[in-house]
Design a protein around this nucleic acid. Structure first.
Lengths: 358, 358
DNA sequence: GGTTAGCACTCAACGCAAAAGAGTGCTAAA
DNA sequence: TTTAGCACTCTTTTGCGTTGAGTGCTAACC
């Protein structure tokens, strides 16, 4: 019988769910009477109290102090998320918002992600994050140079995932347009598809030999490229809607809030967290699950964005532990679906065309 | 006699300065006794009280309630900033920090500005902002295209101020590399140096005629360029060190804080404020001077970054009204001096070389 | 006339005790 | 196993006197 699966009776589940739901909405401890009123259970508050005592013993609930109601523990929230969560259906208005605002931002991935994190924040009322994760080893698919002045050109690099990055290069000596063109060709034939750590001195020397006239320019350019690759390795993260956190009483403790904001500024911890995720499913980290101390009272939910089997970004939401997970999950799914669609459309288009073109 | 200039006696000035100094440091109201102790005035607390009462009548001081000390009013702070401010000398350590961290970030203006705002936040302990102001009409100095696939190329544009911006372009029909090269040439001859509003239909039609084969590609590209120009018009702003605000009691009111954070998120108001500034001096906006309601209890100080006589960015600081203006001014001057130097060095280099090169 | 000592007055802040309220645990009966 | 009832616990709220910082005013002083 399913009434005994996972070691919890149906009634216990119902009570746990009711408590979590109420706690998510209100933020405070939940008492037995409240549940009795807002739930059609054919039993008395005393029975509920007994059940609650047992749920507490099992570790799903906690009691702030003797005469308060119960609050779901981390374990309780985890169980709720894994087993009890009801599907949230987005309103047509929300769907429309996603469609409109995201389509309008069609363009570079960075911008799409930022717009998405903004939307996530708006729709869920938590803080949104947009992430370009650290990747083990990026490589450049194509180089281009733009000549500006005798000692000044721009180096443009297109990464394997389609991102474009540019650097102004100022040289000590002069470079001619012809030299620059040769340099550009050289970069494209020697330095595409390889990660930073494979740019070795022998390789550089070989390139210099091939360059001939103006060989010293190779070193300058390669240094810039190296720096550029390192920057790409770093990952990026942008945050939106920090102000929304303030509406939740769990952040009224200034100390906590300050620490969390500090973590959001530093970006490292969260970037690590997201970059470490293996699959492309939504990840939910409740409280201490994240292993980041300052997030013990918060939850982080994020969804990687995958293109061509490679994780190119992630969008997510940060908020109190008692997050409205149903809504957050639906929103992130909706957003990521939309983004993936946009990327897929491209791919199909390109795929179809290149079949004909090649 | 200078003892009467600006309508304030020397002693009144000294008292006002003492009050503002103490208020900046402590945040609370300042009493007559405190001043007597920390200031060598040869008079009694009663005299100081009399002076304070007069200063209040003149509008320089305010009294939170009858039995509290005095707090400088907006007018008082303004007078302090304009007349009483003492020069703050940066420590060698601070100077070294600016030099090291900024030099390390040498590269794109965006990154320099962000690094500078970060530094500003660190050194002053307020929130730092980096801004690329709205400019009335940007133009593109140079276009470049990067061919990727038959229906997919990248358009790179270099603005007159040296910023690089790129857009992926996906076309419905296919474009050949040869067509793309011609398109690129066309863009460079027709669309350099003109702002968005001068891209007219007749111009487009003329370009299409000149293009010949693949003329429809012109429309696609021009649309992208138009969007790109509009984006450049918008301005950008990034914020760092929000968490530092929390240490100041004036932001312990969650409502205020939330509003201010909202304003920082929206960026518009502050972007407006900065973009509207005329000269390249440091601007100081205390409380309601900014005309932005939510900033009534805050101060905004910023310094435009000028290159070739054109404002290309700004760095600034946001914090409580009782900001340590001396330190903030010194820090911003130091940072902007450094940045300008970096930009100037380029210019001289280029200038010298191009004389020889052209 | 400006300056000073002295004193009454004001008002936020603090501490504390009593009261209120919410919710539990336990017991005994159904 | 469930339930009604009740004593108990602990937080929250409220009220109130106390404290203390700081002022404003008056009268004397130089």
């Amino acid at each position: 019988m399913s009434s005994e699966n996972r070691g919890l009776t149906e009634r216990k589940k119902q009570i746990l769910k009711a408590i979590v739901d109420a706690h998510i909405e209100g933020g405070g401890p939940v008492g037995s009477k409240y549940i009795l009123q807002n739930q059609q259970l054919k039993c008395s508050s005393a029975t509920i109290r007994n059940e609650m005592a047992e749920l507490e013993e099992m570790g799903y609930l906690e009691q702030p102090h003797a005469s308060a109601g119960r609050v779901p523990s981390e374990l309780g929230l985890r169980f709720y998320v894994d087993t009890l969560l009801e599907h949230y259906a987005m309103t047509t208005h929300e769907i429309a918002q996603i469609n409109n605002l995201l389509r309008a931002k069609m363009g570079e991935l960075d911008q799409i992600l930022k717009a998405a994190s903004n939307l996530a924040s708006n729709l869920t009322n938590y803080t949104g994050i947009a992430i370009k994760p650290r990747v083990s080893s990026v490589s450049i698919a194509k180089y281009e140079t733009i000549y500006l002045e005798p000692t000044h050109y721009i180096l443009v690099a297109v990464t394997s995932s389609g991102a474009v990055k540019s650097k102004h290069v100022r040289t000590e000596g002069e470079i001619t347009e012809e030299e620059l063109a040769r340099l550009s060709g050289l970069l494209n034939s020697y330095l595409t598809g390889i990660p930073a750590e494979q740019i070795t001195l022998p390789l550089l020397m070989e390139m210099e030999t091939r360059m001939g006239e103006g060989a010293w320019q190779v070193g300058v350019a390669v240094k810039v490229i190296y720096a550029l690759l390192r920057e790409l390795d770093e990952g990026e993260m942008s945050v939106s809607g920090i102000n929304r956190l303030l509406q939740y009483p769990e952040y009224s403790d200034v100390g906590h809030l300050q620490e969390l904001l500090g973590t959001l500024e530093k970006k490292e911890d969260i970037l690590d967290l997201v970059s470490r995720s293996q699959n492309d499913d939504i990840s939910i980290m409740i409280g201490s699950e994240s292993q980041v101390k300052v997030m013990n009272n918060s939850a982080l939910v994020f969804k990687p964005i995958v293109k061509d089997g490679r994780t190119v970004g992630a969008i997510g939401v940060i908020g109190p532990r008692r997050m409205d997970y149903a809504k957050v999950l639906a929103t992130l799914e909706g957003l990521s679906g939309n983004i993936t669609n946009m990327l897929e459309t491209d791919k199909q288009l390109n795929g179809g065309r290149s079949d004909g073109g090649n």
